[in-house]
Design a binder for these strands. Structure first.
Length: 244
DNA sequence: AATACGATCAACCGCAATGCT
DNA sequence: GAGCATTGCGGTTGATCGTAT
């Protein structure tokens, strides 16, 4: 479990690490769907996740974000990665911006597992890479400016382009629709509604109480501002006591 | 059938950049 | 400008799975 004792015997939560469960994905998607991305560091507790903001961000960016492609890279994508890598080097995020629907992590993995060997074993590709590296310096600053603008466009796209009908959307259990980036933690009333919608009372009662989130409630007093579905049903949560 | 090995990929970690007070 | 919080990035790790022995 993610409950520990300090040397003084006080109860303390530790953040969860490792693979994300379907339940956690569902919470993250539902929360961002409703409130948008307003602050990665603070958002996990409002979303009922025992994760670091970093972990949430990574999960969202690399796996849950609307519009992400999954599955094998096409020939064209491969060519693009090789091409842009020859110009940009290991600047994975910059390369990712050139390949819509692919995350930097995915491209980086694909490079290390597949493409790197191909380039190393192919003198022609190797040579063209060297040549490209030489000219890359001169165009780099220009590229950066363009990429910055693309960042803005990309962000705008994400917020408004996706619906649950997207073929590439992976998690099957999340029948939520991405509306827009609202960008706020929500009011107490909002959050109460959010939780009650996400976990209808009947469903909540049927659930196994052992689940991480719900167990936390047992130690509620030991935690600082831990939020659970229960706290909303019992009107325990006071948002004014939490600093953002 | 058991296990050793390599490939894959999700996730972590540390650090740098940026923003805010 | 200092100090702190937050975000973003790239290198790396480790769990898992398929294949070979």
């Amino acid at each position: 479990m993610h409950v520990m004792r300090t040397p003084k015997g006080e109860m303390k939560t530790s953040l969860k690490k490792g693979a994300w469960s379907l339940e956690e994905d569902r919470k993250l998607i539902a929360y961002i769907n409703r409130y948008g991305i307003w602050n990665w560091s603070h958002m996990p507790k409002y979303a009922g996740l025992l994760r670091s903001g970093k972990s949430c961000r990574l999960r969202w960016m690399n796996y849950l974000k609307p519009g992400l492609k999954k599955g094998s890279f096409s020939k064209e994508e491969e060519q693009n990665i090789l091409h842009f890598h020859s110009i940009l080097g290991n600047r994975w995020s910059a390369i990712a911006r050139k390949l819509p629907g692919r995350s930097d992590n995915e491209i980086k993995n694909y490079w290390h597992t597949t493409l790197k060997k191909r380039v190393t074993n192919n003198p022609v590709l190797k040579g063209s890479k060297q040549e490209s590296m030489n000219i890359s310096q001169s165009i780099e600053s220009d590229n950066d400016e363009k990429l910055d603008q693309e960042d803005v466009n990309h962000a705008n796209e994400i917020n408004f382009s996706w619906t649950s009908k997207d073929d590439n959307y992976t998690p099957k259990d999340n029948q939520v629709e991405f509306i827009a980036d609202i960008g706020s933690p929500g009011t107490v009333e909002d959050l109460q509604y959010f939780w009650k919608e996400l976990y209808p009372l009947e469903e909540l009662e049927e659930r196994n109480i052992d689940e991480d989130m719900f167990l936390d409630h047992i130690f509620q007093d030991s935690y600082d501002h831990t939020i659970t579905p229960w706290s909303f049903y019992n009107d325990e949560y006071d948002i004014t006591s939490t600093s953002i």
